[in-house]
Amino acid sequence: MKGSSIKKKDYLAGYLFIAPPIIGFMLFSLIPIVFSLVLSFSEYDFFTGEINLIGFEGYARAIEDELFFKSLGNICIALGGVLLQIAVMLGVALLLTAKVKGVTFFRALFFIPSLCSSVAVTLVWKWVYNYDFGILNGLLTSLGLDKVGWLIDTKVAMISMIIQGIWMGIGGGMVMYIAGLKNAPRQYYEAAEIDGANAFQRFFHITLPCVSPTTFYILVTTIIGTVSDFARYKLMNNGGPDYSTLTPVLYIYQTAFTSQYGYDYTYATAMSWLTGLFIIVLVAATFISSKRWVHYSV
């Protein structure tokens, strides 16, 4: 009897505490999201208010749309870079938790890219990748190598964007890993050393599992972030050369907000829901797999 009233108290507290974000979501996000969902199934004239439900026509059109498919392919390439990005984040974090003098200074250095406005940073990278007088090609020619068309060659362009993405994006995950590493219980390490475990074993069996909750968060948010990333693709090359850096969100933006595809807002909503579905499937897969490799310490 006492048990059930405590449980009810728990339920009340539980729901109450998550109420603010839910209310916020319902006030500010739900309506726009539902509106855009309905829009994706219809042809809506914003000016006259006429709405025609066309069912899945918009979605069917998106599926047959070569460019949309190409953009999905491009984003899959970018997603391939996600694991690399996480590895770099962890590696740098490990480096920055070392007990060496001046490590605080280095921590700031590695984090500076994330502090700058992304517009400014993107523009700087445009110069870095410039074929004629960019930093990278300058370095290559001074070593006697050929210049590379970083943003001009269709085979290289997406990879250039991935590298830029890693540079711009590791700040967040790196900081979280540092916090996570610092809070890994010391007893485990000490016990392991007494047992004679070497550095690799300690890393794989203690460090990785201890930061797995953080890894899970970083993995999910990086997947979402990589697919949603659009401003820099627009600024760098606007999807070029020959659509090799066209991402789904950029294509959606061009369709909805520019004259390139005739300001076709309703079609863009259909594509964005497909893209959202794509992300949700990936995130769900991550969630499901997380039961295997994420360890929450007790």
Binding site: G14, S29, P32, F35, S228, Y265, S272, T275
Partner: peptide, 28 residues
Amino acid sequence: IQFPGRDKIFFGFVATMAIPGIITMIPS
């Protein structure tokens, strides 16, 4: 805190992060 539907609601929250923001720009 344990309460019914907890994990599903949590996943729902994460799922809301998945919708590309620009498409809700106009309705917002």
